[in-house]
Design a protein around this nucleic acid. Sequence first.
DNA 1: AGCGCTTATAGACCTATGTCAATATAGACA
DNA 2: TGTCTATATTGACATAGGTCTATAAGCGCT
Lengths: 113, 113
Amino acid sequence: MELLEILECSPPLAREPLSAEQAAGVARVFKALGDPVRLRILSIVASRAGGEVCVCDITDAFELSQPTISHHLKVLKDVGLLTSERRASWVYYRLVPETLGELSALLTVPATV
Amino acid sequence: MELLEILECSPPLAREPLSAEQAAGVARVFKALGDPVRLRILSIVASRAGGEVCVCDITDAFELSQPTISHHLKVLKDVGLLTSERRASWVYYRLVPETLGELSALLTVPATV
DNA sequence: AGCGCTTATAGACCTATGTCAATATAGACA
DNA sequence: TGTCTATATTGACATAGGTCTATAAGCGCT
C-alpha cells in the first residue's frame, strides 16, 4: 500500500487512536523527518522558489560526503516526501506537498476554545 | 533551550531553510514520532476524552512489557509532547497540545491556488 | 570509444535504539 | 514495618541507521 494512501486514511492523532497498520505507515514518514540533515534538505527543497533543486546545490549546502546526501535524498523519496527527475547529467528534487499536508493534518489539534 | 521554544521560532519548512540548530531540535521531536508504538500511545492520549490516561490503560493496549511502555512514555515526555502527573499510585499522562500544534504548523504547506 | 562530470549503490564501521528480564522506587494500607 | 500494586530505572542484547571510502552507472562531449 502506498504510504500517501495510509496518510490519507489516518485520522488526526487527537481524534481517535491509530491502528497498528496506520501507525506503522505514519511512523515511517516521521522517522524520515527525524534526522536534522534530512529536515534541512527538505526545507531547502520545500522553500525553494521554482520548486526544484539540483542535487549538487544540496550537496554544497552541507559538509557531508556526496553519497551521504544521496542516501538522505533516497530516504525522503522512499517515504513520498520528495520526487526526482533527471535532466541531462543533473537530478532535480521536488517536494510532494500532498504528503507534507497530510502529515500536518494528522498533527492538527482542535482549537482550544 | 527548551524544545518548544525551538519549535516556536522555526519557520514552516516551506518558507525558508532551517538552521542547523533549529533542525537539530525539530528532528528530536520528529524522531520521537518515528516509532509506531509511540505514535499509537500519543494518539491514545491525544484522543482521550478528558485528556488524561493512566499508564496502566496504555500498557493494556499493547503486547509489550511494562518497562518498554514506560520507556516510550519517557521519550514522548522528554521532547515535550506529553506531561505526567502522579496521583496516589497511578501516573496520568496528558497531551501538550502546543507542541503538536507547532509541529503541525511547521509542516503546513501553502495552499496551491 | 573514451573522457569528465554528476549521481547512485555497495560494503564497512560505529553508534543509537527498541526490547526484555531483573530490580528499584513510590504510594496505599494493614 | 511489611506487603501489595503501579511505575520507573538498569543493564544486556540484537537490530537499525548515519557516515565514510570505493566503485558503479548515466549522460554529454569530442
